[in-house]
Design a protein around this nucleic acid. Structure first.
Lengths: 336, 336
DNA sequence: GTGAAAGCGCTAACAC
DNA sequence: GTGTTAGCGCTTTCAC
């Protein structure tokens, strides 16, 4: 095996121009999507370029255009399967639309200020935040610097910021309807303390819909989040097993924790003794042990719409903020 | 709400220099970690910079240095919780060490050539691949372009490429030992068709260790991967419920599919009728319904070592390729 | 349609 | 320690 390392010469547009017998501008034009070059020149340039193994230097281009194709993705909580699928879908979509996602996972100990500088210093084309609690300073700074910003799963009303949300209202109502249709007459929503905007909106809609049928709903607040939150709720709920209860968790991870503990710790039979419905339709909801009825949001739809909005805002930065809603559907399984 | 958008003037180092009454170099030096500036100058510059709201333009810096702090992360399969945690840990570590991860999720339909150009065109400082099947062309091209490359969970022997692996051999042996210690005398490994390098290494070691005790091991090959692969294996394995079987899955997702189907479809009692051990210690392995005994690899340790190797290679690009091994431990739960 | 020239904002010699 | 000068590789007027 040859272990010597010749320094690789950097091939610039000038090299290509010389070989092709044209100017640097001609080379630049051939590699700029909408530019006007004669077919003949283009061919000469492309031939020379591939001969030399030329690649456009995107950093130089970025410096010149004062904008790169980089898009900052600020995410939290990749341990929630729904979130990680969302990130993955978004990243794929961004790449396929010509952007490059820079990933920042918000850590509890993470310095937001620092994160912000990083983003802005890279002349990103835009920023997408899929974090339950996006630091407001970041949003404001993006607005100030004219960096297009899209917020997923969150509502505020900052100017020049776009929002993409699942139809939380419909989702919450669907959940209530499913439970009522199953004959449940006492409804309960489990809500972890740290529940974000979306979760609250879902639960509010859930309560609203139940009230329309004259059914009252109580909220069980738990300290822990996600699966552990469900575990925590299970004791209280097991006590009410004979009360014709319909339970709603605004996240599948919570629902799964609850369901798991209910069945395997407290011996509660679901759906015989009570009904349970979750939200997100994560893969685990379809697992045999769970077979959880839930509300599905399409991560691909989310990704598609998010990138569309980003592009739109890049084209017309001063457009009014948009607020897109993604449809949700009921996935009927065995727990309701 | 004010909706007018004054174009934000770009503040350059020259502006700062003028205000501070120094040269651009002085400004540059103040913002370059290891540079030599007098305390007095530094203070003047910092004052002027913060007054103006100056930020170093990393794109310009990148053009000049012929290197950005961008690091390409090529990932596949974020649907596996272990992978997504790995990505998240790596991203956090990269950021905290001064790098910016660009995320590329490999899709089945993804154009590798395109991906590669993207990476190289951005003058990345390095590339980390955590994909079971990293496209060889990408590795080769990185080597050719002198871009530091770290491969996680994979072994090859490309020059100038670093490898980071869990101790698959130890893991496989630990699994066998646990099963044998539980009194199992017939061992079986479930192996999805698409099993990557690590999975194979684990199973090989598992077989090797069993053989040392004179115990023979069979392999059950399944077509599906992950959870579905486990589901698929469950029928065959349920048939052998009374054979004192010890089963090993080289991934928790597979083990969980198997366990779930065994208990909830075939009524097999685990660990009474057979023992089962998984690999990775994903969060779901600790869920009540599963309580899966498994082999743990620390994603944080992985991330730490990976970034260290990357930095080392950036400093000394021509060093011999390294191969780091991350320790693994047995997590004893209820299925063995 | 094409080329020449002038930067984008920064860092890296090199003198002082 | 500091300023001057000369680029990094590209795009983009602006003439032609």
């Amino acid at each position: 095996m040859n272990t010597s390392r010749p320094t690789p010469m950097i091939i610039t547009s000038l090299d290509v121009a010389n070989l092709a017998g044209v100017s640097r501008s001609a080379v630049s034009r051939t590699f700029t999507p909408g530019a006007s070059v004669s077919k003949k020149t283009r061919e000469k340039v492309e031939k020379a370029a591939s001969e030399l193994g030329y690649r456009v230097n995107l950093v130089a281009r970025g410096l010149n255009k004062k904008r790169t194709d980089l898009v900052g993705m600020i995410a939290s909580d990749m341990s929630n399967p729904y979130r990680s699928e969302q990130i993955s879908a978004l990243a794929k979509r961004l790449v396929s639309e010509g952007f490059r996602p820079m990933l920042f996972c918000i850590d509890d100990g993470m310095n937001e200020e620092q994160l912000l500088s990083i983003l802005l210093n890279y002349q990103v084309s835009g920023v997408v935040i899929t974090s339950d609690a996006p630091p407001v300073e970041i949003c404001e700074e993006c607005a100030r610097m004219h960096v297009p910003l899209a917020l997923v799963d969150r509502i505020d009303d900052l100017p020049f910021v776009d929002y993409i949300n699942g139809d939380d209202r419909k989702g919450g109502r669907l959940a209530a309807e499913a439970l009522i249709a199953a004959g449940r007459r006492e409804l309960l929503a489990v809500r972890p303390e740290k529940t974000g905007y979306s979760g609250r909106a879902r639960i509010d809609a859930f309560i609203e819909r139940a009230a329309e049928d004259g059914i009252s709903t109580s909220i069980l607040e738990v300290a822990a989040s996600e699966y552990e939150g469900g575990l925590e709720a299970s004791g209280d709920i097991a006590l009410r097993r004979n009360r014709n209860l319909g339970v709603f968790c605004a996240s599948d991870t919570v629902a799964l924790g609850l369901l798991d503990a209910l069945r395997n710790r407290h011996g509660v039979r679901v759906p015989e003794e009570l009904s349970l419905i979750g939200y997100d339709d994560i893969p685990q909801a379809a697992w045999v042990f769970a077979d959880l009825t839930t509300i599905k949001q399409s991560v691909n739809e989310f990704a598609k719409v998010t990138v569309e909005m980003l592009k739109a805002r890049i084209d017309t930065p001063d457009a009014a903020p948009k607020n897109q809603i993604i449809d949700v559907t009921l996935i009927q399984r065995g727990t309701v």
